[in-house]
Design a protein around this nucleic acid. Structure first.
Length: 529
DNA sequence: AGAGCATGCGCC
DNA sequence: AAAAGGCGCATGCTCT
């Protein structure tokens, strides 16, 4: 092996449904020395050594083959995801070949012959992307972070989230009452349904039907226009309390109840019960991830205790405190806000510095700044924040005004907001313009926070690589969970915090912004915070 | 019967 | 009918 060779781009194309893999060096838009391997032998290709940049059409179809073969991967380019970013960033002419490659999905790749052609195509795409990125350090970093994120997503999906069905069952019975034997509602839900029916004098009422409930409420003299909780709360009628309680239970029952667990929990080949979670990197326009199917990014707090460490293991639950305000301070280069963030609680710092009078007001004001609040308490506190942190406020205000003018805005690393929809030049159009402005205002902050989270996760992945038995098992925007052997959990917790600091420096250089991470080493997720 | 929308609510 | 950004999902309900 020539250890003096420079960084090598290595293209990987699986075919025959992953039974075989084509590997080639990519340079100058060409694939060189293509070799075909049986999937199990691919690790023997010495070009796939640490330090090489592995290039694939998309992680979902290509990564499993390499992961199964035990190929260490530490740099990667996901051509599909980076393509999307670059097209949106308008750094690239929309050439026909790009449009074509967008349509090349995983299935199409599988059906391609193992000839050089797909590898050449990959090489050409890589060349075009690198040319488009040029010397834009932000886009280069974003391309790397997005690609590594896609790999982490595949790894998370393969790992699954440790899940204890017995605990889940107990938590549900506690919240909803005894589970029904056949069809029908859990006991406490059924009791509440009966209470609602009796209070509204409608023995056949289906409490799951908003229309029926609305009609019944109005018949009973309750003046509401919907059955939304916020509206019900303002009413005084004996049906209201059980109805709200019922709806809360119904939500848990349908979203994270027994059927949900049955659908998404699986027992892997080592006898461990895990929730199968398919993450979709870049699934949200801002760059946040989404999930496909399981709703795993919305798991109700009430049942998080069912996510439990396996024997001999602990969960390291880590969440980044006030990530978005910190992302805002950094992208706006607001030294004063960054200074307030020096410490674990940015909101409390605003109180201590006399900017606002209570922590709740600090939070409300910040939410208003990030989302564009114009009413209520948030609007009252906002001017105080604007006076104390003019740079941060100018950044979000600027993004909002740009959006209203139909301009596209960018995150810190350069992800562009989507093309705005059309709106008329009338009052309704004005409302739409302001709504779009609220979106672009939030886009720059949410998107930048998502970029930080990608960098954080890449760092966590690297940091736990040498901790035998440790694995990332969950990601939730500003929170990660690592399962680790009990005796090494404390060490992992520290590494996760260091990775956060490193992510901050990677994105924002010497700008003095801190990203404190709260960690808890616990037996189950319900014990964290 | 299935597609697609509306409602409502959980998460960040 | 929500005020204020981003989602996903279950259910009811209407339209085809």
């Amino acid at each position: 092996m020539d250890v003096d060779a420079g960084p090598l781009d290595v293209g990987v194309v699986p075919f025959d449904r992953g039974a075989r893999v084509a590997v080639a060096a990519l340079a100058g838009g060409k694939a060189a020395d293509a070799r075909i391997h049986a999937a199990a032998d691919v690790a023997a290709d010495e070009r796939l050594r640490p330090g090489a940049r592995i290039v694939w059409q998309d992680a979902k179809s290509a990564a499993p083959v390499l992961l199964d073969a035990g190929v260490p991967i530490d740099r990667v380019r996901d051509v599909r995801l980076v393509h999307r970013i670059l097209v949106e960033a308008r750094s690239l002419p929309l050439e026909e070949r790009w449009a074509r490659s967008l349509r090349t999905d995983a299935e199409a790749l599988f059906s391609l012959a193992p000839e050089a052609e797909p590898l050449d195509a990959l090489a050409e795409q890589l060349r075009l992307q690198d040319a488009a990125i040029g010397d834009d350090a932000g886009l280069a970093m974003l391309a790397g972070a997005e690609s590594m994120g896609a790999l982490v997503a595949v790894e998370l999906g393969r790992e699954g989230l440790p899940f204890d069905p017995a605990r889940h069952d107990a938590l549900l019975e506690d919240a909803l009452g005894e589970r029904p034997t056949a069809t029908g509602r859990p006991r406490r839900m059924e009791a509440l349904a009966a209470e609602v029916r009796s209070a509204l004098g409608d023995a056949s009422l289906n409490p799951d039907s908003p229309q029926e409930v609305l009609r019944a409420l109005r018949r009973a003299g309750v003046d509401v226009a919907s059955t939304a909780r916020w509206e019900l709360r303002e009413q005084d009628h004996p049906a209201i309390e059980p109805l709200i309680a019922y709806k809360r239970m119904a939500r848990l029952h349908t979203a994270n109840g027994w059927a949900w667990a049955h659908r998404w929990a699986r027992v892997d080949d080592r006898g461990r019960c895990r929730l199968a979670i398919e993450y979709v990197p870049g699934g949200v326009v801002t760059g946040r991830w989404a999930t496909e199917g399981s709703g795993a990014m919305q798991i109700a707090r009430q049942i998080r205790g069912a996510v439990a460490a396996e024997p001999g293991m602990r969960l390291v639950v880590a969440d980044a405190a006030q990530l978005e305000p910190r992302a805002l301070a950094a992208l706006a280069r607001d030294e004063a806000l960054a200074e307030a963030g020096r410490g674990a609680d940015l909101y409390q710092a605003l109180v201590d510095r006399g900017v606002v009078d209570t922590r709740t007001h600090a939070k409300l004001g910040m939410l208003g700044a990030l989302y564009g609040g114009t009413t209520g308490e948030s609007a009252v506190v906002l001017p105080r924040l604007a006076r104390a942190y003019p740079r941060a406020m100018a950044a979000v205000e600027g993004a909002a005004r740009a959006g209203e003018r139909r301009e596209r805005v960018r995150t810190w690393l350069g992800r562009a907001s989507p093309e705005p929809p059309r709106w008329r030049d009338d009052e309704r159009g004005g409302r739409q313009a302001r709504a779009w402005g609220r979106f672009t205002r939030n886009f720059v902050v949410q998107g930048t926070a998502a970029e930080w989270a990608l960098a954080w996760m890449a760092g966590v992945r690297r940091a736990i690589r040498d901790v035998d038995g440790a694995a990332l098992v969950c990601f939730l925007h500003d929170e990660v969970i690592v399962q680790a052997p009990a005796e090494r959990a404390a060490e992992v917790a520290e590494a996760v915090q260091e990775a956060a600091a490193l992510a901050g420096r990677t994105l924002f250089g010497a700008f003095p912004i801190e990203f404190p991470v709260q960690t808890a080493v616990v037996g189950d997720w319900g014990q964290a915070k």
